[in-house]
């Protein structure tokens, strides 16, 4: 139940990987292969939460770090401070563990960390378009439970993931621009 949206965001940031190793024929398999060779990535993000019924946008900024297969750290720095961590021991908010429930989607994170696109496919319909230099992936949830709050996730990138947009079912959106600073 907890933190579904955050988790989805974290999942998506794990795609902020060097994608330059992609083969000419761009498909999920090559993407999976690329993911499984990645290691440490870090950068900055700008996150915009658009509230449809209030016609308001809440903007925040922060940094991210990704160590493949080990840890994702997502840090909000402005206007509030918060650090979310995901590793083998689960999720933590500012160092305090957050518990899972069986219905959760946290496993999606691990599937991604493991480069397990096959498993991700069991929860999303994934449509990949473009080339390795300029690609777009649309993830549509295929389960009733997730569709209740999430319409789709759109990922855009070239060498790396540069933009992520989540369209929620109530009309709100959450969009994140990523700028990689390392490596």
């Amino acid at each position: 139940m907890m933190s579904r949206i955050t988790r989805l965001i974290l999942i998506c940031t794990t795609l902020a990987l060097p994608l330059n190793a992609m083969a000419a024929e761009f498909d999920l398999n090559t993407l999976t292969q690329t993911l499984s060779t990645a290691d440490h990535v870090e950068g900055r993000f700008v996150q915009k939460r658009y509230l449809h019924d209030m016609e308001t946008t809440l903007t925040s900024r922060g940094t991210y770090q990704f160590d493949r297969g080990e840890q994702v750290v997502w840090t909000l720095t402005d206007p509030v401070q918060e650090t979310l961590t995901l590793d083998d021991d689960g999720m933590q908010r500012n160092g305090t563990a957050i518990k899972d429930s069986p219905a959760d989607v946290a496993r999606l994170i691990m599937q991604l960390l493991n480069g397990d696109f096959a498993a991700l496919k069991s929860r999303f319909d994934i449509a990949l378009t473009g080339s390795d230099a300029d690609w777009q992936a649309r993830l549509t949830p295929n389960s009733e439970a997730m569709r209740r709050y999430l319409k789709r996730i759109t990922l855009t990138g070239g060498d790396t993931l540069s933009h992520l947009e989540m369209a929620l079912s109530d009309g709100d959106t959450l969009s994140i621009d990523l700028t990689q600073t390392r490596p």
Binding site: M2, Q47, L51, T56, L58, T59, E82, L84, K99, S101
Partner: peptide
């Protein structure tokens, strides 16, 4: 700024009461 639970909306639930309730009463060791 960064919703991490269900329906954390500035008008409907600015304090994330629903999510706190679920985490407090339905947490599982899994």
């Amino acid at each position: 700024f960064m919703p991490d639970g269900l329906d954390q909306h500035p008008i409907r639930d600015p304090y994330g009461l629903l999510d706190r309730w679920l985490a407090g009463t339905m947490a599982l060791p899994f």
